[in-house]
Every structure is written in structure tokens, then in C-alpha cells.
Simulated scan of single mutants.
Amino acid sequence: MTNPNIRFFPRTSIEQVEEGTELAPRFDADGLIACITTDASSGEVLMLGYMNDEALQRTIATGEAHYWSRSRQLLWHKGATSGLVQHVEEMRVDDDQDAIWIRVSVAGNGASCHVGYRSCFYRQVPVGSKPLVEAETDWSGQALVFNEDHKVFDPEQVYEGMPNPTLL
């Protein structure tokens, strides 16, 4: 259900999109726009999600983050099941209006990752160093490094009986 009070403008010119005051988001071929979500206090990247027209409208109207789940193919009010609702403190759109950035405060324990970590970006990819395997060109043995040393909630308890939101 779209909100009739939220209106996106048609894209009419580069000047309108890049220098104007009208919100004219460019959704991709699947009807989605990328959304980077960061913690409003620390600036830490919490997640990358996608919004369709309805998710963006609901986020603007309610001040709570809504996304489109590509794996489940449904609208997703972040925290509706877990209680870890993301309250939008600030929303920005990039220069050509094809990406959204929201700064949020998260209810509860502050976690945003369905795996139980605070951030969905809980592992670091080593760069600029030799791979951990013999062949210089083979990076298959490169180990990810955990940046978070513990989960802030148990996803099996929170999402008991629900299908895993990530399809392998």
C-alpha cells in the first residue's frame, strides 16, 4: 500500500535530478534502489538493503526503515519480528538519486544483522597482503577476519519457526 501523501517526481532533466529540490529516485530494472544504513551515533555501517517504491514511501512516512527483501520477495519492516526497529534520524539521496543513505538509531540491543551481530558487516576482507595459500594468484584460502567477537542476540530464539531470511 503506497502512501498518497508521499510523491516522487518524474525525472525530467539532469539539472532537476542533480541540483533540484524534487525527490525523483531512479529505481533499477527490478524496481529497487540501494540503501546504505549507518548507526546515527557512531557512523558504523550496519547494512546494505534495497527499497522499492513502497518501502521508500513507508520509510519516509513512518520514520522507520522499510526494505524490500530480494530473497523473500516481500516488503520488510526492519525490526517488526525482532523488535530491533531502525528509527530514521536522517535520510539522504545521492547526486543522481539512485542510492539512499539513512542514519538510524536501533531499538533494543542495537543489532541490525539477522545473524545476531550488531552490523551485517561483521567480517573484514584482508587486502593488500599475501594470500594465506601457496600460490600467489590463488586467493581461495584468504581468511575473513571477524570484527565483532560476539553476537548481541540469538537468532534462533528471535526468529524461531521462521524461514532463514537468506537463501543460499
Rank of each mutant, 00 (worst) to 15 (best):
A65W: 00
R26K: 14
D98P: 10
G116D: 02
E134Y: 06
D138F: 03
F8K: 04
Y159G: 03
T137V: 09
G161I: 13
E89Q: 13
T81V: 14
G110Q: 03
P10T: 13
W76Q: 06
E136Q: 06
R123T: 14
G161A: 12
D30C: 09
T12M: 12
G83Y: 07
V45P: 02
D30W: 04
A55Y: 01
P4H: 09
D149R: 07
Y50F: 15
V104K: 00
T21R: 14
M1D: 10
G20L: 10
G161Q: 10
A135E: 08
E44A: 15
L167Y: 09
Q16Y: 06
W139I: 07
A107Q: 09
T37V: 15
D96W: 05
Y159K: 06
G110M: 03
F146L: 13
T12S: 11
A107S: 12
S42W: 08
E89M: 09
N164E: 10
D30V: 01
A29V: 12
F121G: 00
N3Y: 09
S13E: 04
K78G: 00
R123F: 04
N3T: 06
T62D: 15
W101R: 01
R118N: 04
S140F: 03
H87Q: 11
N5R: 14
S105G: 05
E90V: 04
L144I: 07
E134F: 07
G79Q: 03
S112T: 12
L74Q: 14
V127F: 11
Q57E: 15
P165E: 13
Y50L: 12
T59N: 05
A143W: 01
A143D: 11
K151R: 15
G141L: 06
E134T: 09
E136I: 02
A61W: 05
G110A: 07
Y117S: 07
R92K: 12
D53W: 08
L168A: 14
L32Q: 08
V93D: 02
S129N: 04
Y117K: 11
Q157G: 01
V45I: 15
S71P: 01
I33P: 01
